[in-house]
Design a binder for these strands. Structure first.
Lengths: 347, 347
DNA sequence: GACCGTATTGACAGCGCTATCATAAGCTGT
DNA sequence: ACAGCTTATGATAGCGCTGTCAATACGGTC
């Protein structure tokens, strides 16, 4: 970096570099610190002085350098966000809720996608920490000790999102996936179904889906029913995977199920398409249930029986609690966002 | 911020603050600058010295402060990303491609969502610039003069993504939406259809959809056909909107269309659901065509006729060209990513 | 042995900003 | 008139790091 050492530092600055606070201050005829206070509206500054500074800033097209500001002691207004995926609309919704709330307070997310890879998650965590964010929002890929340790050592506000079943290092905002699975088991059993199957996607990567399956099993056993066939196909959940998966599940099932619980709506919509193509009457021949409450499921000729997971709301609440904490407040450590069972017409 | 002024600065640091490079250097018995070089693998450092520094860094759990590093002259490794929406899977896909490529080179996106609001876009642009990013990737909400001016004045690499029809300030990566509309017109006309309608969503916000419509019109007129009814419903595109919209379009149409071109696949899938529920045979009674090539459309009992838009690839290429430029390369100013017409079974 | 090139290390200054403390000016009450 | 306040402004000293230039040590050459 060129240093213009010794000479008048601002001689060429107007041409070469971005305008600095010092130039704004000089243009307004005040000291640097007064200009700083005026632009931040912090501390006592006479109103005509502030106006003069603001005019100078606009005239010079001044954009503050928050790297310098944060280094000098101002609170950072960046928030590290780590999500396991963006292929699934679920996390895009969460991110939308997050960004929306953060932006309202002048904060910005720095994003990292872990692809459900704990090693990548760990690297992301370190990388994002190097930007000294004000806080962290993370949807953990898995609960590993390393991640746990890093989060605890991070020494800044952390919100773990999506589920509230596991222990969290600091704050948590999400739903109980176990509870959601259980609720669906009770609902379906209450509708009279007794022979159940489960169709899921890459279980090794999505532990929240596993929790729903566990909860589903528990819920069934509470009413004296045992879960039948469980088929988990590798890879992320997609509509085509659900479609092919159901075909395979029905072909391989030892006892034909009356109802299938899918790992989520993408899979379930695929299942609905298979039934339609194969002439299987839903829900008379086979009942279908999903999870998430995606609009696509509700727009099907027969709206899907599912559970709405309030994803955007989870992001919004996570950001709200983080900002609250940063403002010195004391938000709840665990926020159990309600899920809502949507009866639909497929079960 | 407490300054420990006068006294030994590191006296309590191990307890209070994060470890700094200076502490790592002392622990390794070298100067600060040597530690810096060792950790960055920059400049000549003896291999045993480097190992000593690395061990010290690990022992202290050192995380570099990139705010300080960037301020001191190192190139920033943050990239500002501004997208108009995340409700639509399209932009989530783009973001995924971007993040994936950037992360590979140790860069991270700072995200802003404009909600198709030029004022918010402008504010985001200023806010993100204040973090002194290495570059910018933006899917402009609209092409306003203010945004144009800011981008030109930004004086850093900028990639405008999604479409290549309009002029760009620096680099552009995307597809020709006009061309895509035209291609669909020619394809449908080639299949023998002659009476066309268009069903779109909030046209005031999504100018790329408008460009597809324009191209569609042009393409039809090139084969001597005039586009019939055009219905644009307010709000973002969703499956339910497409379903309701098609019902309304057919009810209100002056002359019943043979084929409907939808603003995108979300809308078209909704249209397919309406046909199914209303007993309209597709494509015999009515042909349907969408845009984007979403997996949901391809999983329908009858795969949707549509155009694949390679969204993730656009993000990936945009990031690649940005990184190339940052590395001193000279990537193409305009990259026209191919789209691909998927024949499907609905038209 | 003086000389040179290379490898390795360090001293120093400064990036652009804000926290802290000090100062000056204006006002009140007695 | 002077203490005792509040309001407005500034001088100073860093934040933690990296670019620049200088210094040292080592091996070999003539």
């Amino acid at each position: 970096m060129p240093h213009f050492s010794g000479m008048d530092d601002d001689r060429q600055d107007t041409q070469t570099r971005r305008p600095t606070l010092s130039q704004v201050a000089r243009a307004a005829g005040v000291s640097e610190i007064t200009a700083s206070r005026a632009l931040r509206r912090d501390g006592p500054v006479a109103s005509d002085t502030r106006e003069r500074v603001e005019r100078a800033a606009i005239a010079l097209n001044y954009v503050p350098n928050r790297l310098a500001g944060t280094l000098a002691g101002a609170a950072s207004r960046q928030v590290g966000v780590i999500l396991p995926s963006l292929s699934n609309i679920v996390f895009a919704d969460v991110l939308k809720g997050l960004e929306d709330r953060l932006e309202g307070d002048g904060y910005h997310p720095i994003l990292g996608i872990s692809n459900y890879d704990p090693l990548r998650e760990e690297r992301l965590l370190r990388d994002l920490m190097s930007w000294r964010p004000a806080g962290l929002v993370i949807a953990p890929a898995r609960k590993t000790d390393v991640t746990r340790g890093l989060l605890t050592a991070a020494d800044l506000p952390v919100v773990e999102i999506m589920d509230v079943d596991a222990e969290s290092a600091d704050m948590a905002v999400g739903i109980s996936h176990r509870g959601a699975g259980r609720a669906m088991a009770h609902y379906l059993a209450g509708r009279g179904y007794r022979r159940f199957a489960y169709l899921g996607h890459g279980i090794e990567t999505d532990f929240r889906a596993t929790q729903r399956l566990d909860g589903f099993r528990d819920g069934l056993s509470e009413v004296g029913v045992t879960l039948g066939d469980v088929l988990c196909l590798p890879g992320p959940s997609t509509v085509p995977l659900g479609r092919e998966g159901l075909a395979r599940l029905l072909a391989e099932a030892k006892t034909p199920p009356e109802a299938v619980f899918f790992s989520n709506d993408d899979m379930a919509v695929g299942g609905a398409f298979h039934c339609q193509a194969a002439g299987i009457a839903v829900p008379e021949d086979l009942a279908l249930a999903g999870f998430n409450g995606l609009s696509i499921g509700q727009a099907l000729p027969k709206p899907l029986t599912t559970i709405a997971s309030q994803r955007e709301h989870i992001g919004f609440v996570a950001a709200t609690h983080l900002l609250d904490r940063l403002a010195g407040g004391n938000p709840p450590r665990v926020t159990n966002v309600d899920f809502r069972l949507i009866p639909g017409a497929t079960a």
